[in-house]
């Protein structure tokens, strides 16, 4: 990946608040059209990193280039090309969903018609005339994303867009995020949901205590772990002894409802089970980014 084609280039940025090293030497590049996730627990330095990249904060050292330009100090030429979603309450008082979009759009010289398109994109067309404070949390979150997109930017920054949403609202939002990527936008987003990053992102950077611990496509990260795959079956379809004897099974154990086999070679195990017709209640769970995080930090992931 050459840097000319990169939407975002970050080189060794650092930022300290007194003794606290909020960002401690972070580097990454994001290609045009890529969906890039920065994930990690609260206090990992995700938001500070994002704010430096957006040009809201000056790094103590290091360099940021967005579309070849420096975002700091405030770069008016660059601003129309980036869209930043802030927290779900960053709205003007007492305006309807449509008016919010029109007002934010006007800051960029965008025509009022765009507001309707944006509401359509985020699935709020029927809420156009609702005041912002009457919307649900998920709807507000979607509106704030629409506000970030209203001027058709090339790069979109989203800071924890799915935080504090119920599962249904999160899934609705995933559809919105995918639709944005389909429009050819580069998306940089932070999250503390590992499962979500795994589903949405082309690549993820895992951050903790101001550093990037790993940076790769989620599947590569997970594969690199060499963690066992867990195959779960209904209790009783196979005895623990028989299960342990199957080729490729490292370990088998049983609880009140199910039998779980650990394996690093799931293919022969699954075919052996199929041969025996012992597939009732089959579930296969591979390692997730949570396991990657656990492996990288030596501690359990807590969002």
């Amino acid at each position: 990946m050459t840097e000319e084609r990169s939407a975002v280039v970050v080189r060794d940025i650092r930022k300290s608040y007194g003794e606290l090293k909020a960002v401690d030497g972070v580097s990454f590049t994001v290609a045009e059209g890529e969906f890039f996730g920065i994930l990690g627990p609260n206090g990992a330095g995700k938001t500070t990193t994002l704010e430096i990249v957006e040009g809201l904060r000056k790094p103590d050292s290091g360099e940021v280039r967005l579309l070849g330009e420096s975002p700091w100090p405030r770069n008016v030429k660059l601003l129309p090309r980036i869209g930043v979603q802030l927290q779900a309450t960053s709205f003007f008082d007492k305006l309807t969903a449509k008016e919010q979009l029109q007002t934010f759009g006007s800051l960029y010289g965008v025509s009022h018609g765009t507001a309707a398109d944006m509401l359509e994109l985020v699935g709020l067309a029927d809420k156009a005339n609702e005041q912002e404070n009457k919307l649900s949390g998920g709807q507000r979150q979607r509106l704030s994303i629409a506000c970030a997109l209203v001027h058709d930017p090339d790069i979109v920054f989203l800071d924890e867009p799915t935080a504090a949403l119920d599962p249904q609202a999160r899934r609705n939002l995933w559809d919105v995020l995918r639709a944005i990527q389909e429009r050819g936008k580069t998306i940089v987003y932070t999250t503390h949901y590992l499962d979500e990053a795994e589903i949405l992102c082309d690549r993820v950077a895992i951050m903790d205590t101001g550093r990037i611990l790993a940076l790769d496509p989620p599947a590569v990260l997970v594969r690199g772990l060499d963690a066992p795959t867990h195959v779960t079956l209904q209790k009783g379809v196979l005895s623990v002894v028989d299960a342990s004897a199957l080729e490729g099974v490292d370990e088998a154990h049983e609880d009140e409802v199910s039998l779980t086999l650990s394996t690093r070679r799931p293919a022969p195990v699954l075919s052996a089970l199929a041969e025996r017709g012992a597939l009732d209640g089959l579930q296969v769970r591979t390692a997730t980014l949570e396991d990657v995080f656990l492996n990288l930090t030596g501690r359990e992931y807590r969002a």
């Binding site: 957006e54 040009g55 809201l56 405030r74 008016v76 601003l79 129309p80 980036i82 930043v84 802030l86 927290q87 309450t89 960053s90 709205f91 003007f92 934010f104 800051l107 960029y108 506000c147 001027h151």
Partner: peptide
């Protein structure tokens, strides 16, 4: 507090 100021600062206005 609601970061509207930040939003305005990020717009070319």
């Amino acid at each position: 507090r609601k970061q509207v100021l930040r939003r305005i600062r990020l717009a070319p206005v």
